[in-house]
């Protein structure tokens, strides 16, 4: 990363991943490196249902959040916006949909 910008969640995390949770849901996890990283992503001022809804074009009421300090993980689940393997589905396993979340930069909401 260049010196003139702040790191993204993808750069701060051990891993950011997404996957189907059955055919009708998508789930994502931010695996942070330590309690400090966890505190960044668990901060509702930075990351909440509204932010995820904006990133993925959803109704915030459909977004489920799980904050798990024991694992330094924040997990997000929401109904799949596009039916799995339908004509408009470009990601059958929903395995590349973590990228917009991983591109978020803490401190610049």
């Amino acid at each position: 990363m260049s010196a003139d910008r702040r790191p993204t969640l993808g750069e701060l995390a051990l891993e950011v991943r997404s996957k189907n949770a059955g055919p009708f849901w998508v789930t994502m996890e931010l695996f942070m490196r330590d309690a400090e990283g966890y505190a960044l992503v668990a901060d509702e001022e930075f990351l909440d249902e509204e932010v995820v809804a904006r990133l993925y074009g959803l109704d915030p009421a459909d977004v489920l959040f799980f904050r798990i300090p024991e694992l330094n993980v924040v997990k997000v689940s929401f109904p799949r916006p596009v039916a799995q393997a339908s004509l408009r589905d470009r990601d059958v396993h929903a395995g590349q949909h973590h990228v917009p979340l991983a591109a978020l930069v803490p401190g610049s909401r």
């Binding site: 189907n20 949770a21 849901w25 489920l64 799980f66 694992l71 997990k75």
Partner: peptide, 16 residues
């Protein structure tokens, strides 16, 4: 403990 606990997250809507 982390690798085992983290598996409850995998492909689940609710990890608990």
């Amino acid at each position: 403990p982390t690798s085992v606990a983290a598996h409850m997250l995998y492909e689940t809507v609710d990890p608990f």
